[in-house]
Amino acid sequence: MTARYCSLAQQPAPAFAPGLAAERIGALVRGHRMWVNNTVLHYCFFTDHTDGSVIPVPGTGETRRVPWAGTKEQQDVVRECFDEWQDLGIGLTFTEVTDRSEAELRIGFQPGGGSWSLVGRDALRAGLHERTMNFGWDLTAPGERATVLHEIGHALGMTHEHQNPGAGIHWDDEAVYEELAGPPNFWSRDRTYVNILRKLDRDEVNGAVWDPQSIMEYPFPPGLILEPEQYRAGLHPPGTLSTADQEFARRWYPPAGTGDPPALVPFRSAALRLAPGGQADFTVEPPETREYRVGVFGAADTVVVVFEERDGEPRYLTAHDDGGTPANATVRARLVKGRRYFVRVRLYSAWGSGETAVMCW
């Protein structure tokens, strides 16, 4: 019997201007969904039974409206899995909130709606009253903790491991389509292709080497995989965070250092000596209340995010991603004297000569 699988909707590929170098495009594809490090990701649960949506009833041609609210027992499994990722010592922090307007991640428990998550920063494009993650079956059942760890992996920016082109998987395509068309998934051919058969770009995957033990790997019954030969009898990942999963999370979100980042003083530039994927953090304590600009200078693709410190933690204020454009990332924000702000700059790639720098003015 086929397992119930995470079902991601296909997202449009990022569009880049013609003529960009392959190395530059690769860096943009690898990083465009990743959060800047030292972000506090706030999550909330839909609890109001007026929040819901209409879903099809498999095999009937009918639809029904199903709420998104879940039980405390289901919520507790999700809380525990956020803690498990957090306990790796990564540079992201997960904080539960009750006000959805404060949450980057909004979680529903719609039975029959499938389990899925938006990937990384794609969550920021969802509307305030929309889910960024859903769990479509009972998470308290044996083995379902793996479903939650998997969906949180997507929220961190991870992709499906079996779609890694380095896996070398040769599928029996029609057997896969037939298996997924039936219970418990009832997938269309398009959904099966998007989530299983489609090979990802090498720059999209979690690592160059396929990790069949990854939490992002589906289990598969016998008869779907033709090659590698050892998986003809099925593929059965353990449902836990593998060593490679942990390395991926720590590589993109290394533990925060001790002490405050250096100050970014208005009208004084700070050099950015970053490797691709690197990040520089600064604090800003404005000498007066007014509108400021924070921007990067130089031939580089970057994302700049400004946070305001509230109740001892950084809260997202504004951001700009200049990836793939000739312009530099620049944000405008009203900064208040007596408050503290954090500026985080992540470099995709430096594509020209000369140094890059950031300034607040």
Rank of each mutant, 00 (worst) to 15 (best):
I196V: 15
R346I: 11
I25N: 10
G19A: 00
P314S: 03
G354N: 05
P326E: 11
V148F: 02
Y292L: 00
F297W: 06
F297T: 14
W85N: 02
V305N: 06
V306P: 08
G352V: 09
Q75V: 10
L92G: 05
L149W: 08
A69T: 06
P12F: 14
R202L: 11
G295M: 01
T47R: 14
A22Q: 13
T71N: 06
G26A: 15
V57Q: 04
A357F: 01
G298C: 10
P221I: 09
G257E: 08
C6E: 06
W68E: 02
R232C: 07
R232H: 02
T192P: 02
V176D: 05
V66P: 03
R339W: 02
P14I: 15
A167G: 13
N206V: 04
E227L: 09
S214A: 10
L180E: 06
R198F: 12
M158Q: 03
A69Y: 06
W137C: 10
G70Q: 03
S349I: 10
E227C: 07
D122P: 03
A271R: 15
G223Q: 06
R346K: 14
A357Y: 05
V119Q: 04
S188N: 10
L200Y: 12
E204D: 14
H320N: 15
L200S: 08
G239A: 11
G113M: 09
R346A: 13
E179A: 12
P287R: 15
V304M: 08
V29R: 12
P165V: 09
T289M: 09
A167I: 00
P261L: 01
I152A: 08
D172R: 09
A126N: 03
G298P: 03
